[in-house]
């Protein structure tokens, strides 16, 4: 019991995730800045931002639904942290696992996006409502391809649990190479999930001010920012676990370093993508997802179905 509690709260649970989120945000920002030939923030900037925001006044608009407005940031953090517990980090065993947890993790990762929507909706301000509608439109566009892309490796592994998938690829090294198209698809979709350029449409600063977060300030905004940081780590870990399951059998120290490298690589890839594109319009984004991303994910699924038949003979 005490062991699980430690795992949930300290390592690799909440506190570890907070630390990892801070590091991820710093890495993302400095790498982004360096690619733009800027200097970038000092190492403590994400923490300083968090402290600064937390010290500011919490303003809740009179028109907003006060309960929802305050609850949403907490729900968002909770959902993201929970999903992390089912993802195998190093080795092939997650902290908790059961058959079907892949679906649960994907759903839990949808919850932050839903909270963004609700937060925007219940702020009742114009910009926030427009942002909320955009959030949900975008969610519909990328969610299906994401499911297909993540389920393809599961199909090949014949397991609906992330730990099971990891175990399969541990037993069959190099099979993960078949899933590379899925990796590409999910990297693009992560941009949408994390609301980064070119899919930062819901919070497009020059169009709708702060989007869903327009009315947020102080601690609540700090919580949302933390959610996005944590989500970045969790989603990258998920991608690493599903699509990059190599080198799992070297014990925990090497495994942990390898895990960090994988996550860093995923974040670097996201960061590169967000640096070299312009923001799309919402209709272009939906078009793009259905025209290119969904067929690619479908293709991955078909390939894996065929492969499964071939390989099992």
């Amino acid at each position: 019991m005490a062991q699980s509690l430690f795992n949930i709260i300290v390592f690799p649970g909440f506190l570890f995730l907070c630390l990892a989120g801070v590091c991820a945000e710093y890495f993302d920002r400095i790498f982004h800045a360096r690619m733009q030939n800027r200097k970038g923030p000092p190492w403590f900037q994400p923490v300083a931002d968090f402290i600064k925001l937390s010290a500011k006044e919490d303003i809740i608009p009179e028109e907003a639904d006060s309960f929802m407005f305050r609850a949403m940031p907490v729900v968002a953090v909770a959902a993201t942290v929970t999903s992390f517990l089912y993802i195998p980090l190093w080795g092939s065993q997650a902290l908790f696992s059961f058959e079907g947890d892949v679906i649960v993790v994907l759903y839990l990762l949808t919850i932050p996006t839903m909270t963004f929507f609700l937060a925007g909706w219940y702020s009742t301000s114009l910009y926030a409502s427009v942002g909320a509608v955009r959030t949900i439109t975008q969610l519909f566009a990328y969610e299906v391809p994401l499911f297909m892309a993540v389920l393809a490796p599961a199909l090949l592994a014949d397991s609906w649990s992330l730990s099971g998938i990891a175990a399969y690829y541990r037993a069959h090294p190099l099979y993960w190479v078949f899933n590379l198209p899925g990796l590409a698809v999910s990297l693009v979709i992560l941009l949408g999930k994390l609301e980064k350029v070119p899919f930062d449409i819901p919070e497009a600063e020059t169009e709708i001010v702060g989007g869903v977060f327009t009315e947020y300030a102080g601690r609540y905004l700090a919580f949302f920012r933390m959610t996005i940081d944590i989500e970045m780590v969790v989603a990258s870990s998920l991608v690493a676990a599903v699509f990059l399951p190599f080198g799992l059998g070297f014990g925990s120290v090497v495994g942990f370093i390898l895990y960090l490298l994988k996550v860093t690589a995923v974040i670097a890839a996201i960061c590169l993508l967000r640096t070299i594109f312009a923001r799309l319009r919402i209709d272009q984004m939906v078009d793009f997802c259905w025209k290119y991303i969904a067929p690619a994910a479908l293709l991955q699924l078909l390939v894996n179905i065929v492969l499964k038949g071939v390989l099992s003979q």
């Binding site: 733009q36 030939n37 350029v197 930062d200 312009a278």
Partner: peptide, 16 residues
């Protein structure tokens, strides 16, 4: 123009 369409990299380079 780059900034207005979310292409901040273009902003940074052209201003540099």
């Amino acid at each position: 123009a780059g900034h207005e369409i979310g292409f901040d990299t273009l902003l940074m380079y052209s201003w540099r």
